[in-house]
Amino acid sequence: MRTEAWLFTGTAVFFGVTGSLYAVFAQEPAGIAALLVSFLMSGLIAVFLWRQYRRDGRRPEDRGGAEVRSVGGRSAFFPARSYFPVVAAAGCALTGLGVVEGLWLTLIGVGVLLPGVFGFVFQNLGHPE
């Protein structure tokens, strides 16, 4: 996790420096906005990865002598069968197609996507950790 955190931190710094220089020299709003959004997105991922690393420590795959069965720290519970990935994928496809075809299909896609995402988030509430 630490390697990924450093990777995204470096990416965020790159986009931050590049965006600052671009804003000073180019004065072009579309490029400045694109570099700013890239900086913010990579910075968000970097912050998340640093937080996970500090909370859980090194993962088994980060250690050279780890066994396959080693599970360090917390582990997530994934149910054996769930229809929520299919529902969410169908909702994403309909929403994306609706952007091209029309508002009516976008609304249907969002109506299918929301229960899929809701199910992903709340399907493990009854599982004891």
Rank of each mutant, 00 (worst) to 15 (best):
A30N: 06
F48E: 12
P128I: 00
E28Y: 03
G119Q: 06
R55K: 15
R55P: 03
G96P: 09
E61M: 07
F77P: 07
M1W: 06
C92G: 12
A76R: 12
E4T: 14
F14H: 04
H127N: 04
G111Q: 05
R69L: 10
A34D: 11
P60H: 01
Y53N: 14
M1D: 06
P60K: 03
A26H: 10
R55F: 09
V37A: 11
A26L: 02
A23L: 04
G64H: 09
Y83Q: 13
L105P: 03
F14M: 09
L35A: 09
Q123L: 03
A88W: 08
V99S: 12
G109Q: 01
E67W: 11
W50M: 04
F14P: 01
V117C: 05
G116C: 02
A34T: 13
L49A: 02
V37L: 12
L44C: 07
G31K: 01
R2T: 11
G31S: 04
F77S: 08
Y83L: 11
V110F: 04
T9M: 01
F25I: 07
Y83I: 13
H127A: 07
Y22I: 08
A23Y: 13
V117D: 03
F25C: 02
L35C: 12
W104H: 13
L125F: 09
L40V: 11
Q52L: 14
L97D: 05
G119E: 08
L97P: 02
I32M: 14
S75W: 12
V112R: 01
V99R: 09
H127D: 00
G31T: 00
Y22D: 04
A5Y: 05
Q123V: 00
R69N: 09
V24F: 12
L114M: 07
T3I: 15
V37R: 11
G73A: 10
L21W: 00
A46T: 03
W104N: 00
A93E: 01
V47S: 07
G72L: 13
